[in-house]
Design a protein around this nucleic acid. Structure first.
Length: 422
RNA sequence: GGUGGGGUGUCUGAGUGGCCGAAAGAGACGGUCUUGAAAACCGUUGUACCUUUGCGGGUACCGUGGGUUCGAAUCCCACCCCCACCGCCA
């Protein structure tokens, strides 16, 4: 959420930011409501001041045994007027709030301006795919041939775009999760958490999924709870409505969780196999930091994510998302795209974002600085990595001419010494 | 699901209709003392919003939302959350 006063004083900045993010917002309507609100507020507050003064007077008169009935009668009227104004005011506040919570975050000046992903800028590239003398298979064929991924039965159990991993496929996935968590905990200094995977409405609002993305999430109607689309939600909300001490910062958390996404209306493009599924596993990293450090923290966050791919020896590129591709809450975002040689394309396997104080303001995450003043922290998060797609890259990259999959060096200990699948 | 207890500021915790934005303690910050530190003592210390060029002025906030009242942290209603016990399920 943006600061209301900031919107009032910088309407053009907000409009431009929204336009660059392809969001339709009614900033002028907001300014209108905002002006009317202040007018009513002043009226209400000066009446309340009068009421408070006279109420004190009434109290005094009663103590002194004087007759206060005339004043009481007068205040009865004043209170009625206040009530009327406050009702209107509450309506205005609601409208104002709903505009405000739909205003997207302002992109950082370093973010390339552009309509969509075609304006994204490649920042760097790492690794290479060795030439092979055989035709590489796509992961869906590898998965079926080796009997480690079962799309058919997943469809029967749950529906299309669900997956079932089996045998060494399941173990490989678990090994990757374990490896990533250990890396972030031991080498990068993150604290592991296992959060709830089902969260309430307020948590979804805090990180910015609501109100915009309600259609994209699974909800339990009876309790009005949501299945998390990413561990970012529960982990960021750990410190909702808290005031942290400056000494606590920065805070780094990493969490494994399954992620649930309805992906309403997003099919049609190539989404076969594991590319876009309703449930996948992910290791997430979340940071709470002092504002002045957040862009440096973003860089190290990306580096932490990159190291996963480097250790897996998967070629990838780092892309700075353009304004049009940037999510609602993000001020800046780098995607990590791994190369999948079987399907011959780059796959987004990680997204690392700085939200600045956008999420913190929505969810009341502050810290007390050295001067004793409380202010909003900056929050960041990044995947390290998203499992299904990273698995695609591993399968397609490590396949052999014999149809088997070599186990990446770093995963062998996590696979009980197994060096090859199939 | 039932019964009982409870949600107050950064924290602990008092307060049951007006003099309560709220005692007390802790913490934090500043000072005195000290070679330095600790202790002791003194002082300061909530947030948001409106208004003002500034000094300042004002309003609201005691889980959330309503209600009663001239006036609510305090009384009434509903809801949410936490704790304990019981029931049910694993």
């Amino acid at each position: 959420m943006l600061d209301q006063r900031f919107v009032r004083n910088n309407p053009d900045v907000v409009k431009q930011a929204a336009a660059n993010k392809n969001e339709r917002v009614d900033v002028d309507g907001f300014l209108d409501l905002d002006a009317r609100r202040r007018e009513l507020l002043q009226a209400s507050e000066s009446l309340k001041q009068r009421r408070n003064t006279v109420s004190d007077e009434i109290a005094r008169m009663k103590r002194d045994g004087e007759d206060a009935s005339a004043r009481i009668e007068e205040m009865r009227e004043v209170s009625a007027r206040i009530k009327g104004i406050d009702t209107d005011l509450a309506g205005l506040q609601d409208s104002l709030q709903s505009v405000l919570e739909r205003l997207p975050n302002i992109p950082h000046p370093s973010v390339p301006v552009g309509a969509d992903e075609s304006a994204n800028v490649e920042v760097r590239r790492w690794g290479s795919t060795p030439e092979v003398e055989f035709e590489r298979k796509a992961h869906w064929d590898l998965g079926e041939d080796l009997d480690i991924i079962d799309f058919q039965r997943a469809g029967k159990i749950s529906g299309s775009h669900f997956v079932l991993f089996k045998g060494e496929g399941a173990r490989l996935q678990r090994a990757m999760i374990q490896f990533m968590l250990d890396l972030h905990i031991q080498k990068h200094g993150y604290t592991e958490v296992i959060p709830p995977y089902i969260v309430n409405r307020q948590s979804m609002f805090g990180t910015g999924q609501l109100p915009k993305m309600e259609e994209d999430m699974y909800r339990t109607d009876l309790d009005d709870l949501f299945l998390i689309p990413t561990a970012e939600v529960p982990v960021t909300n750990m410190h909702r409505d808290e005031i942290l001490s400056e000494d606590d910062l920065p805070i780094y958390y990493t969490a494994y969780s399954p992620c649930f996404r309805r992906e309403a209306g997003s099919y049609g493009r190539e989404t076969r196999g594991l590319i876009r599924v309703h449930q996948f596993d992910k290791v997430e990293m979340v940071k709470f930091v002092r504002p002045e450090t957040s862009y440096d923290e973003l860089e190290t966050l990306v580096n932490d994510a990159e190291e996963v791919l480097q250790l897996l020896n998967i070629p990838y590129r780092v892309v700075s998302l353009s304004t049009g591709d940037l999510s609602f809450a993000a001020a800046k975002c780098y995607d990590l795209e791994a190369w999948a040689p079987g399907i011959d394309r780059w796959l987004e396997v990680s997204s690392c974002s700085n939200f600045e104080d956008f999420q913190a303001r929505r969810s009341g995450i502050r810290y007390r600085n050295k001067d004793g003043k409380s202010q909003f922290v900056h929050t960041l998060n990044g995947s390290g990595m998203g499992m299904a797609r990273t698995l695609i890259a591993v399968l397609e990259h490590y396949q052999t001419g014999r149809g088997s999959i070599r186990v990446p060096e770093v995963l062998i200990p996590y696979m009980g010494g197994l060096k090859e699948i199939g």
